[in-house]
């Protein structure tokens, strides 16, 4: 998969290119906004990592053109960490906002998470560690061995995998199962999560589903892969 890294600081660019390369991505590098637009126009880019402070202008200005009407996801990678900056970045069409310095495993996990999100760029198979989820056949496997799950558990797992390494709020997960069945009791979600946990444990999946009481659940381990 091809990633365009727009970063004007040579040592940082070199280090990030190395890390992304080791994670299996092909990386194109642009040091300026103009160069970034040139590369984006000719190459088939799956994801853009965009620094905001570029020598020839603010990264936010070229963000809309890099996105190509939302076909290409963009992660803003910047040293600006104020709340307003983050909001401006996300409002400007960024799919995620990562503040430097960032650990490479986390950056890679974020890239994967963005690439997993639904839309015309979504892969049919979501992969988190040994766990695979085919969104077309709606089948799940751990290290290639199939795991049988109910519809609600599938809905919950898909959402957890799309946001692996981060907390999926209760409301988001509820939505994922309510669309399948309108007759849902208040603790149907809790029941579905515990069934899912048992099933994954039974299949030998090492990734725990962490409860963050009062917020939601998180499929841990996404950042490690």
């Amino acid at each position: 998969m091809r990633i365009l890294l727009v970063e004007d600081h040579p040592p940082l660019a070199e280090a990030v290119i190395g890390a992304l390369g080791r994670a299996g991505f092909t990386v194109d590098h642009a040091g300026t906004a103009a160069e970034a637009l040139e590369i984006a126009a000719i190459a088939d880019i799956a994801l853009v990592l965009l620094d905001l402070g570029l020598p020839d202008g603010d990264g936010l200005k070229i963000l809309p053109r890099l996105r190509r009407e939302g076909r290409v996801p963009v992660i803003v990678l910047t040293a600006r960490d104020q709340l307003e900056d983050r909001i401006a970045g996300l409002d400007g069409g960024a799919d995620d906002y990562v503040v430097k310095p960032v650990e490479m495993p986390e950056l890679i996990a974020r890239c994967r998470a963005v690439l997993r999100r639904p839309g015309d760029r979504s892969a049919t198979v979501l992969q988190v560690g040994p766990l695979a989820f085919d969104t077309v056949t709606r089948s799940v496997g751990v290290n290639g061995a199939p795991v049988v799950l109910g519809r609600r558990e599938l809905g919950v797992l898909e959402q957890l995998m799309r946001t692996a390494g981060r907390v999926a709020p209760r409301a988001v997960l509820e939505e994922a199962i309510y669309t399948l069945d309108d007759e849902v009791t208040p603790n149907a979600l809790d029941a579905a999560v515990s069934r899912l946990r048992r099933a994954l444990d039974g299949a030998g999946c090492p990734l725990p589903i962490v409860t963050v009481r009062g917020i939601g659940w998180m499929l841990a381990g996404g950042a490690v892969n």
């Binding site: 940082l12 890390a19 080791r22 040293a79 490479m104």
Partner: peptide
């Protein structure tokens, strides 16, 4: 502090190698 961020970011990224 802001100026320190980029070198720290470089170090963090290089650590991955």
């Amino acid at each position: 502090a802001h100026a320190l961020r980029t070198p720290v970011a470089v170090l963090v990224a290089r650590l991955d190698a």
